[in-house]
């Protein structure tokens, strides 16, 4: 891969993601105040000591934004990695083994996808106790249905190729076929898909937090910060818009990179439509 072949838009995306990850990793060092420290009056305007002002309890918005990057990115990334591993494992198994296994997995996946993700999450989170790992797990399982669909399509595309048949005829086992024959040929579309799922996870987590079902206070996360400060909106206080903008920016950055990855691969199946 040639560095100069990366378009400008993708560079913007990469830079944005890098900044967010930097904030997440070194939050305690760069944040001017603590995550949960009440340092001033409620909803102070931006400027002075508080670059972005303070929130509904008088905590520094910038500091919470930096700490929030940590939670948001960690949870979204964990959910994406998990959903990806799960979806890939099941979809590749379905595509390679075929027959009854494929039918079983695929039909169950259809069933899961017949319920909109957000509605499904609402129903499930209404029942389950509120723990971080449960949240990650629910997000991962729900999202893995989409990974499954795309993974199966991509794997089937490759699995019908004659070199896979040749490997079968040689007597190779399923593991060799998956890891040595199919996987190397699907990396590029799957990488794009990973980015897409990550962007979706960020939005989904933020939505859940905004609805009060995601990350629980007092931990800072971007969706939750919007919820905390939403009442200020009617008074013309823009504190809720700052974390909202952060979510949007990060998602845009990820999508810019994905867009570039997608253009490099033409074989990717499925759209970016999601619900």
């Amino acid at each position: 891969m040639n560095l100069r072949s990366i378009p400008f838009s993708a560079w913007i995306g990469i830079a944005g993601i890098a900044i967010a990850i930097f904030c997440a990793l070194f939050a305690p060092m760069i944040a001017p105040f603590g995550e949960r420290d009440v340092v001033g009056d409620v909803w102070l305007p931006p400027g002075g000591d508080f670059l972005l002002g303070t929130d509904n309890l008088g905590r520094d918005l910038l500091s919470r934004l930096i700490y929030g990057a940590r939670t948001t990115i960690f949870v979204a990334l964990a959910a994406t990695v998990l959903s990806f591993s799960l979806g890939m494992l099941l979809s590749f198994t379905a595509a390679v083994v075929g027959g009854f296994t494929d039918q079983l997995f695929s039909r169950f996946n259809d069933l899961m996808m017949a319920i909109p993700t957000l509605i499904f999450a609402l129903v499930v989170l209404a029942v389950l106790p509120q723990h971080l790992w449960i949240l990650i797990l629910v997000m991962a399982v729900l999202d893995s249905t989409r990974v499954f669909r795309i993974g199966r399509a991509v794997a089937l595309d490759v699995a019908v190729m004659e070199f896979v048949e040749a490997a079968r005829l040689r007597g190779e086992g399923s593991l060799w076929i998956i890891f040595r024959e199919i996987l190397p040929n699907t990396l590029s579309p799957l990488l794009a898909e990973f980015g897409l799922r990550f962007a979706f996870s960020i939005l989904f987590l933020s939505t859940l937090s905004f609805l009060g079902l995601g990350i629980q206070p007092p931990a800072a996360d971007w969706g939750g910060m919007v919820k905390d400060n939403k009442d200020g909106i009617i008074f013309g206080i823009s504190a809720a818009l700052v974390p909202g903008a952060a979510i949007a920016t990060l998602a845009i950055c990820v999508n810019l990179v994905v867009d570039w990855l997608m253009k490099r691969t033409s074989s990717l199946k499925g759209g970016r439509g999601d619900a």
Binding site: G236, A240, L241, G244, A251, I252, N255, R272
Partner: peptide, 26 residues
């Protein structure tokens, strides 16, 4: 293309509050 790429990255609540901020409050 660029505008729509940005638009699909916006969370609904952000768009909502942005509109409220401008059209209802301001």
């Amino acid at each position: 293309n660029v505008v729509s790429l940005a638009a699909i990255s916006l969370p609904e609540f952000f768009v909502g509050y942005l509109l409220i901020m401008f059209f209802a409050v301001q």
